[in-house]
């Protein structure tokens, strides 16, 4: 897994150093189940292979526990589970993307990282209206790349209720 991590880190560094055209928007795309999603590359701090986490008791199912990221205790969220598609059977081949939102670090458990996308700002389109109850609130936009659609995730709304608003997850679970 180490070489995977290293490759991404090198790529990340290249991009962050401005190795590409600075007018382009950059995203990291990854696969969860059968879908591709993306997050803003500027929010990504690190990509690492899945390792066993320490389970936090009485938390929502998609909270996979915490891991040690150079001394910081970082929670890991299972995106597949968050999208209501059941828990990921995490293996060494799965990947955790460490992102920073609102000055907190969180890990996103995904199946695999697909690509690093550099797109023109105008190729990010709005999310069409869908029936209520869908995970639409997590979606920030849709990127079209080579005729395929990649959903851009809104990290803030994905986990607001859990890690920012300070609700009592234990009670949710017990109910």
């Amino acid at each position: 897994m180490n070489d995977v991590t290293q490759n991404y880190e090198e790529t990340l560094n290249t991009i962050k150093r401005g190795g590409s055209d600075s007018h382009l928007m950059q995203f990291i795309s990854f696969r969860v189940g059968t879908e591709d999603y993306a997050v803003d590359i500027l929010a990504v701090r690190e990509i690492k292979g899945w390792t066993r986490t320490t389970v936090l008791p009485n938390q929502p199912d998609y909270v996979r526990g915490v891991l040690n990221l150079r001394g910081a205790i970082v929670p890991v969220f299972d995106l597949k589970c968050r999208f209501g598609q059941g828990e990921t059977e995490a293996t060494e081949k799965h990947v955790v993307i460490i992102v920073s939102i609102a000055e907190r670090l969180i890990g996103l458990l995904v199946d695999q990282v697909s690509d690093i996308l550099s797109v023109q700002p105008d190729s990010v389109g709005p999310v069409p209206e869908m029936e209520p109850g869908r995970a639409q609130a997590f979606l920030e936009g849709i990127i079209t790349v080579n005729d395929s659609m990649i959903v851009l995730l809104s990290l803030n709304s994905l986990f607001d209720s859990v890690i920012l608003a300070g609700t009592e997850p234990a009670e949710q679970n017990a109910a």
Binding site: R52, T53, T54, L56, P57, N58, Q59, G65, V66, L67, N68, G71, A72, I73, V74, P75, R104, L105, I106, V162, I163, G166, T167, E168, P169, A170
Partner: peptide, 27 residues
């Protein structure tokens, strides 16, 4: 002692976390 709240919310029954010699987190 490490804070859970730095990146997450308080968890009932857990006052914090620490990192063990093997690098794993213990609550």
């Amino acid at each position: 002692i490490k804070s859970l709240q730095q990146n997450y919310t308080p968890v009932l029954g857990i006052s914090g976390a620490t990192i063990l010699g093997d690098g794993n987190v213990a609550l």
